[in-house]
């Protein structure tokens, strides 16, 4: 049985970050785009917890930062979903390509 090293965890979190970024750029559904952003934020959470546990276990800075990120991500999602609902009322769609009145 091998011990999991910091490098492996960082690999996972970086992969998660770029998967989120890829999803944000390719998906056209607003809810899925929001989920992609949450994925990016969660990869940052993994980073903080891993750094805290492996490198600086004597202080809890990283863990507390994670708690704040989770809280703020929830607030951000609430506002974003409220905006998306309002967008659905006026456009009858939550596809970003349908909300493209303003360009250049």
């Amino acid at each position: 049985m091998h011990e999991i090293t910091l490098t492996q965890i960082l690999f996972v979190s970086t992969a998660l970050f770029f998967i989120g970024m890829y999803g944000l750029f390719t998906r056209r559904n607003l809810i899925t785009m929001l989920m992609s952003i949450e994925l990016m934020l969660n990869s940052v959470n993994i980073n903080f917890v891993a750094f805290n546990k492996y490198l600086f276990p004597e202080k809890l800075d990283g863990l507390f930062f994670t708690l704040f990120i989770i809280t703020i991500a929830a607030a951000e999602a609430a506002v974003a979903i409220a905006i998306i609902i309002n967008l659905y009322r006026s456009h009858n769609s939550i596809d970003v390509d349908d909300a493209a009145e303003m360009k250049y």
């Binding site: 940052v44 750094f51 930062f65 909300a99 009145e101």
Partner: peptide, 28 residues
């Protein structure tokens, strides 16, 4: 107005995700 708000919240959430990644590496 709702289109503008959608663009603002998505791009600001994305940018804060990028900023946080930077902060986490600084912490690390």
């Amino acid at each position: 107005s709702s289109e503008a708000a959608m663009k603002l919240i998505l791009s600001s959430a994305f940018s804060s995700g990028i900023l946080l990644m930077g902060i986490s590496f600084l912490y690390g």
